[in-house]
């Protein structure tokens, strides 16, 4: 069983900006432009076979540029290994390509990341809010969203 991070670095080292294996979690920071190609490679190549996108979330590092991160956790049932892929997105245009085509499980998780962090996923097709309602103002998990902030009341819709 090959070390997934080493395989990734050998094959697509050009797209990997940074990598580490702190605390036993293999992590690769990937160029957002190359994300879908890298993910397809990870899913399809022999010896890696990441069949599952287990988790997708955003992280807000307020005051740092690029401010946002989207963190993907991949898991391979066949080989029982995990890999974390990170893309960093700038504050003024947090946009990245959607992975719905690669793993349909990305659908709801990307909707949640849009909901909570305002990260746009290109070509998602159905990027609605998942947990909150459409009239909600702002994106609550951003660090500049105060916890106590009240939302305007909305009336019945019809």
């Amino acid at each position: 069983m090959a070390d997934p991070l080493a395989v990734l670095l050998a094959a697509r080292g050009d797209a990997v900006l940074e990598s580490h294996e702190r605390l036993g979690d293999a992590t690769a920071v990937v160029d957002p432009v190359e994300l879908v190609a890298v993910m397809r490679f990870l899913r399809d190549s022999d010896g890696l076979d990441f069949e599952m996108l287990t988790d997708l979330t955003g992280v807000d590092y307020l005051g740092r540029e690029p401010r946002f991160e989207v963190v993907y956790h991949l898991y391979s049932v066949k080989h029982n290994h995990r890999l974390r892929i990170v893309v960093r997105l700038p504050e003024d245009a947090p946009e990245v390509d959607s992975l719905v085509e690669v793993w349909p499980s990305a659908d709801w998780m990307e909707r949640e990341a849009w909901d909570m962090y305002g990260i746009r996923f290109r070509n998602h097709g159905d990027l609605r809010r998942l947990l909150l309602y459409e009239e909600f103002e702002g994106h609550p998990l951003r660090k500049d969203y105060p916890k106590e902030r009240r939302q305007p009341l909305i009336g019945p819709r019809n």
Binding site: E51, M52, L53, T54, Y75, V77, W103, P104, S105
Partner: peptide
Amino acid sequence: DCLRYAVT
């Protein structure tokens, strides 16, 4: 489908 949807 389970695997594609990350069902566990």
